[in-house]
Design a protein around this nucleic acid. Structure first.
Lengths: 194, 194
DNA sequence: GCGTAAAAATGACATAGGTTAGGAAATCAC
DNA sequence: GTGATTTCCTAACCTATGTCATTTTTACGC
């Protein structure tokens, strides 16, 4: 494994936790390296999530399938954690798939190892707390956006804030992220473009 | 304060944390009692959330206002925690209101006190972790439901799972919780009733 | 490169839910 | 209780997005 990878995770942890390396060092050393080819799955619906992943390169889509259509919950890219976190926490089968949108390199920590850390080192709960808090905030912001904007507004917002995403990802992925069907996104794009 | 109130919180903490009273005792004793009359606000949009509340009696609606319409994020009742948690965590102005649906009794802990607990007693981070994890799960389940069901299906679900709610709450509150306007809920009820 | 499969665009049509407005009913203040 | 608000219901109409069927374009395996 490229030694720079652990440094990347360290830098990230330092950012969210602050200057107490002894708090996150045992946490970091518990991670293992894993690669996922484009379109492969980090986890499939029905499996119990065994890992928490830190993305080094690439990106993932978390989605479930409803009546044959993919419904995206979120997209994550380098320097973020991803997991079917509900399954990871509850030890119940995942309702979602997580798929690599590109060839994706990760550091991942097994559930069992993290639980032991929580149990053995009280201060490692702080990492878990900050992680869950961050994920909660992301979920809530997305929900507020869905409840307050139309699909077109969400699309324009995305174009403004993440123009690269729209170019790199297939239309169907962008549509799913926006909570609409690809046909609807096509229509919106045509309306907005000229 | 009714001494039974702290016992209620203790019982709840015991349920989510397990049999280690010394972990949550300092946490519990940091709470103070507070009452909110029906329709009063625990917090208003624009204020910074200073409390995490444990509901003893009554219930609350968390909502924001968009183009004059209330958009409910969640309803919480006795034996659950509620807060404008994003504001509580980020120390930024709340995007939401939290309003008492009934006369509501709570135990609440000030932000500052909780932060000191986190800093002073490593193991108290476990409480914070479990709390954030629980809130994350609730948010995610709601989002999955919104993305996979129509308003009518969500209404029928609510009728099946929480029939009392529908009777005790005004139509506009239920509609907002379902993510639709009161007029639409009226229409759905008429279609479903006969 | 070629052939096949997947993705994207398009257009016609369907529908869930939003919008508006008016009146009935419930609730609240006094 | 009575008047004043607020909530609720109803109905007609509107719009954003979904659905379906077809065509064009792009990507992928060999």
């Amino acid at each position: 494994m490229n030694p720079d990878y652990l440094a990347r995770l360290q830098r990230y942890m330092n950012g969210i936790i602050g200057q107490k390396p002894e708090q996150w060092e045992p946490f970091i050393s518990a991670f293992e390296y894993a690669e996922y080819p484009k379109k492969s799955f980090l986890i499939r619906e029905g499996e119990v999530e065994n890992y928490l992943y830190f993305i080094l390169e690439g990106g993932t889509s978390s989605f479930f399938v409803n009546e044959g259509r993919e419904k995206c919950l979120d997209l994550w890219f380098a320097d973020h954690f991803v997991s079917s976190y509900m399954s990871f926490l509850t030890r119940k089968p995942s309702q979602i798939f997580i798929q690599a949108l590109f060839p994706t390199k990760t550091l991942r920590i097994p559930h069992q190892v993290l639980q032991e850390l929580y149990a053995r080192r009280d201060e490692s709960n702080k990492v878990g707390r900050l992680l869950a808090e961050g994920l909660y905030i992301a979920r809530t912001q997305r929900e507020i956006q869905f409840l307050s904007q139309t699909a077109e507004e969400r699309y324009l917002d995305l174009m403004r804030k993440q123009p690269a995403l729209i170019q790199q990802l297939p239309v169907k992925t962008v549509a799913s992220y926006l909570g609409i069907h690809p046909e609807s996104l096509s229509r919106i794009r045509k309306q907005v473009m000229p």
